[in-house]
């Protein structure tokens, strides 16, 4: 079979007339053919990202009007926010551990 034959039998696929952003995102970001690029783009959090994205993709216009920007500080959406959230959690845990240790020491019966 030659390629010309193939083209003659090919009917074009161009995409639906109305394409909402969520429909596009779950296709262009989701599992396609996996080809390693030279420039490593870390889309590891894409699963989480798309889940969160749906929450605002739904209402892009309303979100825009309302100036909603919560995702900028959402750990799942921002690596910077994620780092600071982890640091904050780490700090809080250390403090708690310290407090507990002090408390346990005080509470131990003296022998």
């Amino acid at each position: 079979m030659s390629d010309v034959d193939f083209r003659e039998r090919f009917s074009p696929v161009s995409g639906p007339q109305t394409t909402n952003l969520a429909d596009i995102l779950e296709r262009v970001l989701d599992k396609g053919i996996v080809i390693a690029g030279d420039i490593k783009i870390d889309l590891l959090d894409i699963e989480l990202l798309t889940i969160r994205l749906r929450l605002f993709v739904a209402s892009v216009d309303t979100a825009k009007k309302a100036g909603i920007d919560w995702w900028e500080t959402d750990p799942a959406l921002s690596s910077r926010a994620s780092r600071s959230a982890l640091q904050e959690e780490n700090r809080a845990l250390r403090e708690r551990l310290e407090a507990l240790e002090t408390h346990t020491k005080d509470a131990l019966p003296k022998r």
Partner: peptide, 15 residues
């Protein structure tokens, strides 16, 4: 894809 058989690559494939 409207003109020929096409395999889309995921967004952000760069060389």
């Amino acid at each position: 894809a409207a003109c020929c058989p096409t395999v889309p690559l995921p967004m952000a494939t760069l060389y």
